[in-house]
Amino acid sequence: MDVASELLTGTILAGARAIRWLDDGDPRGAQTLAAVFPHTGRAHIVGITGPPGAGKSTLVNALITEERRRGRRVGVIAIDPSSPFTGGAILGDRVRMGKHTLDPDVFIRSIGTRGQAGGLARSTHDACLILDAMAYDLILVETVGVGQDEIDVVALAHSTVIVGVPGLGDEIQAVKAGLMEAGDLFVINKADREGYEDTHRQFELMLHLRTEAKTHGGGESWSPPLLRAIATKDEGIADIVDAIDRHKEILQSTGEFGLRSAQREREQALTLACAEIMRGIKHSADPAILSAVENREMDPYRASQLLIKNWQEKAPV
Protein backbone atom coordinates (compact mmCIF):
# COMPACT_ATOMS: atom_id res chain seq x y z
CA MET A 1 0.00 0.00 0.00
CA ASP A 2 1.42 3.38 -0.99
CA VAL A 3 0.07 5.30 1.96
CA ALA A 4 0.46 8.79 0.47
CA SER A 5 -1.41 8.15 -2.78
CA GLU A 6 -4.01 5.98 -1.05
CA LEU A 7 -4.87 8.64 1.49
CA LEU A 8 -5.15 11.26 -1.23
CA THR A 9 -8.00 9.19 -2.66
CA GLY A 10 -9.60 9.19 0.78
CA THR A 11 -8.71 5.65 1.93
CA ILE A 12 -9.28 5.63 5.67
CA LEU A 13 -6.87 2.77 6.36
CA ALA A 14 -4.05 4.77 4.74
CA GLY A 15 -4.91 8.06 6.44
CA ALA A 16 -5.14 6.35 9.80
CA ARG A 17 -1.73 4.75 9.30
CA ALA A 18 -0.13 8.06 8.29
CA ILE A 19 -1.43 9.72 11.45
CA ARG A 20 -0.07 6.82 13.51
CA TRP A 21 3.38 7.19 11.96
CA LEU A 22 3.39 10.93 12.62
CA ASP A 23 2.18 10.45 16.18
CA ASP A 24 4.90 7.86 16.81
CA GLY A 25 7.67 9.89 15.17
CA ASP A 26 8.15 7.15 12.56
CA PRO A 27 10.19 8.57 9.64
CA ARG A 28 7.62 7.21 7.17
CA GLY A 29 5.24 9.79 8.60
CA ALA A 30 7.37 12.74 7.53
CA GLN A 31 7.86 11.18 4.08
CA THR A 32 4.12 10.77 3.67
CA LEU A 33 3.48 14.30 4.87
CA ALA A 34 5.97 15.67 2.33
CA ALA A 35 4.12 13.87 -0.46
CA VAL A 36 0.65 15.11 0.50
CA PHE A 37 1.49 18.62 1.74
CA PRO A 38 0.87 20.27 -1.67
CA HIS A 39 -2.70 18.97 -1.43
CA THR A 40 -3.44 20.69 1.87
CA GLY A 41 -4.69 24.13 2.84
CA ARG A 42 -8.34 23.69 1.90
CA ALA A 43 -10.00 22.39 5.06
CA HIS A 44 -11.61 24.68 7.60
CA ILE A 45 -10.00 23.85 10.96
CA VAL A 46 -12.28 24.53 13.92
CA GLY A 47 -11.03 24.23 17.50
CA ILE A 48 -13.41 23.23 20.28
CA THR A 49 -12.05 24.03 23.73
CA GLY A 50 -13.18 24.75 27.26
CA PRO A 51 -12.89 23.50 30.83
CA PRO A 52 -13.32 19.82 31.76
CA GLY A 53 -16.97 18.80 31.96
CA ALA A 54 -18.24 21.51 29.60
CA GLY A 55 -19.61 18.83 27.28
CA LYS A 56 -17.13 19.30 24.46
CA SER A 57 -17.42 15.74 23.09
CA THR A 58 -21.21 15.83 23.15
CA LEU A 59 -21.14 19.20 21.40
CA VAL A 60 -18.75 17.84 18.76
CA ASN A 61 -21.10 14.91 18.25
CA ALA A 62 -24.01 17.29 17.64
CA LEU A 63 -21.91 19.52 15.37
CA ILE A 64 -20.95 16.51 13.23
CA THR A 65 -24.65 15.70 12.75
CA GLU A 66 -25.44 19.25 11.63
CA GLU A 67 -22.39 19.54 9.35
CA ARG A 68 -23.31 16.21 7.72
CA ARG A 69 -26.86 17.51 7.20
CA ARG A 70 -25.24 20.35 5.26
CA GLY A 71 -23.38 17.84 3.13
CA ARG A 72 -19.87 18.31 4.45
CA ARG A 73 -17.29 15.62 5.09
CA VAL A 74 -16.01 15.91 8.65
CA GLY A 75 -12.73 14.93 10.27
CA VAL A 76 -12.44 14.94 14.06
CA ILE A 77 -9.32 14.94 16.21
CA ALA A 78 -10.19 14.34 19.86
CA ILE A 79 -7.38 14.85 22.35
CA ASP A 80 -7.21 13.41 25.85
CA PRO A 81 -4.38 13.67 28.37
CA SER A 82 -1.68 11.01 28.62
CA SER A 83 -0.39 10.06 32.05
CA PRO A 84 2.79 12.03 32.75
CA PHE A 85 4.03 9.04 34.74
CA THR A 86 3.36 6.03 32.53
CA GLY A 87 2.64 7.64 29.16
CA GLY A 88 -0.56 5.61 29.03
CA ALA A 89 -3.94 7.15 28.32
CA ILE A 90 -7.63 6.40 28.26
CA LEU A 91 -9.07 8.07 25.18
CA GLY A 92 -12.83 8.12 25.63
CA ASP A 93 -14.15 10.94 23.45
CA ARG A 94 -15.46 8.50 20.84
CA VAL A 95 -18.03 7.20 23.31
CA ARG A 96 -20.12 10.34 22.73
CA MET A 97 -19.73 10.16 18.95
CA GLY A 98 -20.70 6.54 18.41
CA LYS A 99 -23.52 7.20 15.98
CA HIS A 100 -21.09 8.57 13.38
CA THR A 101 -18.74 5.58 13.44
CA LEU A 102 -20.26 3.95 10.36
CA ASP A 103 -20.62 7.16 8.35
CA PRO A 104 -17.93 6.86 5.63
CA ASP A 105 -17.72 10.67 5.45
CA VAL A 106 -16.77 11.05 9.10
CA PHE A 107 -13.29 10.16 10.36
CA ILE A 108 -12.75 10.33 14.12
CA ARG A 109 -9.29 9.96 15.61
CA SER A 110 -8.38 9.96 19.32
CA ILE A 111 -4.92 11.22 20.25
CA GLY A 112 -3.11 11.29 23.60
CA THR A 113 -1.11 14.37 24.60
CA ARG A 114 2.03 12.25 25.16
CA GLY A 115 3.70 14.84 27.38
CA GLN A 116 2.73 17.92 25.39
CA ALA A 117 1.35 20.87 27.36
CA GLY A 118 -0.98 23.50 25.89
CA GLY A 119 -4.12 21.44 25.38
CA LEU A 120 -3.08 19.65 22.19
CA ALA A 121 -0.88 16.69 21.26
CA ARG A 122 2.42 17.21 19.45
CA SER A 123 1.01 15.49 16.38
CA THR A 124 -2.26 17.45 16.19
CA HIS A 125 -1.02 19.71 13.43
CA ASP A 126 0.22 16.72 11.41
CA ALA A 127 -3.09 14.90 11.86
CA CYS A 128 -4.93 18.01 10.59
CA LEU A 129 -2.78 18.05 7.47
CA ILE A 130 -3.51 14.38 6.78
CA LEU A 131 -7.27 14.90 7.15
CA ASP A 132 -6.98 18.02 4.98
CA ALA A 133 -5.19 15.99 2.30
CA MET A 134 -7.98 13.40 2.53
CA ALA A 135 -10.31 16.22 1.46
CA TYR A 136 -12.39 16.54 4.61
CA ASP A 137 -14.14 19.90 4.35
CA LEU A 138 -14.10 20.56 8.05
CA ILE A 139 -11.75 19.40 10.79
CA LEU A 140 -12.99 19.64 14.36
CA VAL A 141 -10.18 19.63 16.91
CA GLU A 142 -11.39 18.90 20.43
CA THR A 143 -8.77 19.83 23.02
CA VAL A 144 -8.28 18.34 26.46
CA GLY A 145 -10.20 20.11 29.21
CA VAL A 146 -8.27 23.34 29.58
CA GLY A 147 -7.53 25.88 32.28
CA GLN A 148 -6.35 29.42 31.82
CA ASP A 149 -3.56 29.35 29.30
CA GLU A 150 -3.76 26.10 27.36
CA ILE A 151 -4.71 27.82 24.16
CA ASP A 152 -2.42 26.28 21.56
CA VAL A 153 -5.54 25.40 19.58
CA VAL A 154 -5.96 29.08 18.70
CA ALA A 155 -2.76 29.03 16.68
CA LEU A 156 -3.85 25.83 14.96
CA ALA A 157 -7.48 26.56 14.11
CA HIS A 158 -9.03 29.07 11.72
CA SER A 159 -11.95 29.38 14.13
CA THR A 160 -11.94 28.64 17.84
CA VAL A 161 -15.10 27.82 19.77
CA ILE A 162 -14.90 28.32 23.54
CA VAL A 163 -17.37 26.12 25.40
CA GLY A 164 -18.52 27.17 28.85
CA VAL A 165 -21.07 25.64 31.18
CA PRO A 166 -23.18 26.94 34.06
CA GLY A 167 -22.65 25.85 37.60
CA LEU A 168 -18.91 25.49 37.84
CA GLY A 169 -18.92 28.41 40.26
CA ASP A 170 -15.67 30.20 39.63
CA GLU A 171 -15.60 28.80 36.13
CA ILE A 172 -15.15 32.24 34.75
CA GLN A 173 -11.83 32.32 36.59
CA ALA A 174 -10.71 29.29 34.64
CA VAL A 175 -11.94 30.67 31.39
CA LYS A 176 -11.05 34.32 31.55
CA ALA A 177 -7.33 34.75 31.19
CA GLY A 178 -6.47 33.16 27.89
CA LEU A 179 -9.68 31.80 26.56
CA MET A 180 -11.82 34.91 26.57
CA GLU A 181 -9.20 36.75 24.57
CA ALA A 182 -8.71 33.88 22.21
CA GLY A 183 -12.11 32.64 21.12
CA ASP A 184 -13.93 33.48 17.91
CA LEU A 185 -17.24 32.00 19.11
CA PHE A 186 -18.54 31.45 22.60
CA VAL A 187 -21.03 28.75 23.51
CA ILE A 188 -22.65 28.16 26.87
CA ASN A 189 -23.56 24.49 26.80
CA LYS A 190 -25.98 22.72 29.17
CA ALA A 191 -28.02 25.92 29.07
CA ASP A 192 -30.96 24.26 30.84
CA ARG A 193 -28.88 24.07 33.99
CA GLU A 194 -29.29 26.27 37.00
CA GLY A 195 -27.02 29.28 36.88
CA TYR A 196 -27.26 29.82 33.15
CA GLU A 197 -28.26 33.49 33.50
CA ASP A 198 -25.29 34.19 35.77
CA THR A 199 -22.84 32.50 33.46
CA HIS A 200 -24.33 34.29 30.47
CA ARG A 201 -23.95 37.65 32.22
CA GLN A 202 -20.35 36.89 33.11
CA PHE A 203 -19.50 35.90 29.56
CA GLU A 204 -21.21 39.00 28.21
CA LEU A 205 -19.22 41.19 30.52
CA MET A 206 -15.94 39.55 29.61
CA LEU A 207 -16.71 39.86 25.92
CA HIS A 208 -17.63 43.49 26.40
CA LEU A 209 -14.32 44.10 28.10
CA ARG A 210 -12.45 42.35 25.38
CA THR A 211 -10.80 45.13 23.53
CA GLU A 212 -8.52 43.02 21.40
CA ALA A 213 -11.24 42.54 18.81
CA LYS A 214 -9.28 44.64 16.36
CA THR A 215 -6.49 42.12 16.08
CA HIS A 216 -8.67 39.01 16.08
CA GLY A 217 -11.07 37.14 13.84
CA GLY A 218 -10.76 39.12 10.67
CA GLY A 219 -10.49 42.51 12.33
CA GLU A 220 -13.39 44.59 13.49
CA SER A 221 -15.70 42.99 10.98
CA TRP A 222 -16.10 40.07 13.39
CA SER A 223 -17.59 40.42 16.80
CA PRO A 224 -17.52 37.08 18.69
CA PRO A 225 -21.07 35.82 19.20
CA LEU A 226 -22.28 34.33 22.47
CA LEU A 227 -24.56 31.36 21.85
CA ARG A 228 -26.52 28.95 24.01
CA ALA A 229 -26.74 25.21 23.49
CA ILE A 230 -28.05 21.99 24.97
CA ALA A 231 -25.91 19.58 23.00
CA THR A 232 -27.63 16.46 24.35
CA LYS A 233 -30.91 17.70 22.83
CA ASP A 234 -29.41 19.17 19.66
CA GLU A 235 -30.60 22.60 20.79
CA GLY A 236 -28.74 25.63 19.47
CA ILE A 237 -26.52 23.52 17.23
CA ALA A 238 -27.69 24.94 13.90
CA ASP A 239 -27.00 28.45 15.22
CA ILE A 240 -23.45 27.45 16.13
CA VAL A 241 -22.82 25.99 12.69
CA ASP A 242 -24.30 29.14 11.13
CA ALA A 243 -21.87 31.23 13.16
CA ILE A 244 -18.91 28.99 12.25
CA ASP A 245 -19.88 29.36 8.58
CA ARG A 246 -20.17 33.14 8.90
CA HIS A 247 -16.78 33.30 10.56
CA LYS A 248 -15.24 31.29 7.74
CA GLU A 249 -16.83 33.57 5.13
CA ILE A 250 -15.44 36.65 6.83
CA LEU A 251 -12.00 35.08 7.17
CA GLN A 252 -12.06 34.28 3.46
CA SER A 253 -13.33 37.66 2.33
CA THR A 254 -10.68 39.50 4.34
CA GLY A 255 -7.87 37.18 3.28
CA GLU A 256 -7.43 36.15 6.91
CA PHE A 257 -8.17 32.48 6.14
CA GLY A 258 -5.04 32.06 4.03
CA LEU A 259 -3.07 34.26 6.40
CA ARG A 260 -3.90 32.07 9.40
CA SER A 261 -3.03 28.92 7.44
CA ALA A 262 0.28 30.41 6.35
CA GLN A 263 1.15 31.52 9.85
CA ARG A 264 0.32 28.05 11.18
CA GLU A 265 2.69 26.29 8.77
CA ARG A 266 5.46 28.79 9.47
CA GLU A 267 5.11 28.29 13.23
CA GLN A 268 5.08 24.52 12.74
CA ALA A 269 8.38 24.68 10.83
CA LEU A 270 9.92 26.65 13.70
CA THR A 271 8.43 24.31 16.31
CA LEU A 272 9.82 21.24 14.55
CA ALA A 273 13.25 22.88 14.21
CA CYS A 274 13.29 23.79 17.91
CA ALA A 275 12.26 20.26 18.93
CA GLU A 276 15.00 18.75 16.78
CA ILE A 277 17.64 21.08 18.25
CA MET A 278 16.45 20.30 21.76
CA ARG A 279 16.79 16.59 21.06
CA GLY A 280 20.25 17.18 19.59
CA ILE A 281 21.46 19.15 22.59
CA LYS A 282 20.16 16.54 25.03
CA HIS A 283 21.80 13.75 23.07
CA SER A 284 25.17 15.45 22.72
CA ALA A 285 25.23 16.77 26.28
CA ASP A 286 28.62 16.14 27.92
CA PRO A 287 27.97 14.36 31.24
CA ALA A 288 30.97 16.17 32.73
CA ILE A 289 29.28 19.54 32.21
CA LEU A 290 26.01 18.30 33.68
CA SER A 291 27.68 16.85 36.76
CA ALA A 292 29.61 20.09 37.21
CA VAL A 293 26.24 21.81 37.49
CA GLU A 294 24.94 19.13 39.82
CA ASN A 295 27.98 19.68 42.07
CA ARG A 296 27.49 23.44 41.92
CA GLU A 297 30.90 23.92 40.32
CA MET A 298 29.33 25.55 37.27
CA ASP A 299 26.22 27.69 37.02
CA PRO A 300 23.37 26.69 34.68
CA TYR A 301 23.84 29.68 32.35
CA ARG A 302 27.51 28.96 31.75
CA ALA A 303 26.71 25.27 31.31
CA SER A 304 24.02 26.01 28.75
CA GLN A 305 26.49 28.00 26.64
CA LEU A 306 28.93 25.08 26.71
CA LEU A 307 26.20 22.56 25.86
CA ILE A 308 25.21 24.62 22.83
CA LYS A 309 28.82 25.00 21.75
CA ASN A 310 29.41 21.25 22.02
CA TRP A 311 26.25 20.50 20.11
CA GLN A 312 27.16 22.92 17.31
CA GLU A 313 30.56 21.31 16.93
CA LYS A 314 29.04 17.83 16.74
CA ALA A 315 26.02 18.78 14.66
CA PRO A 316 26.23 17.38 11.13
CA VAL A 317 24.92 20.58 9.52
Binding site: G87, G88, I90, R94, R96, G112
Partner: peptide, 13 residues
Protein backbone atom coordinates in the same frame (compact mmCIF):
# COMPACT_ATOMS: atom_id res chain seq x y z
CA UNK B 1 -4.48 -1.59 34.01
CA UNK B 2 -3.40 -1.00 30.41
CA UNK B 3 -3.10 2.73 30.97
CA UNK B 4 -0.90 2.08 34.00
CA UNK B 5 1.23 -0.12 31.75
CA UNK B 6 1.81 2.84 29.41
CA UNK B 7 -0.66 1.87 26.70
CA UNK B 8 -3.16 4.10 24.91
CA UNK B 9 -6.66 2.72 25.41
CA UNK B 10 -9.44 3.83 23.08
CA UNK B 11 -12.94 3.39 24.45
CA UNK B 12 -15.85 3.16 22.03
CA UNK B 13 -18.71 2.74 24.44
Amino acid sequence: ALREAGMEVIFTG
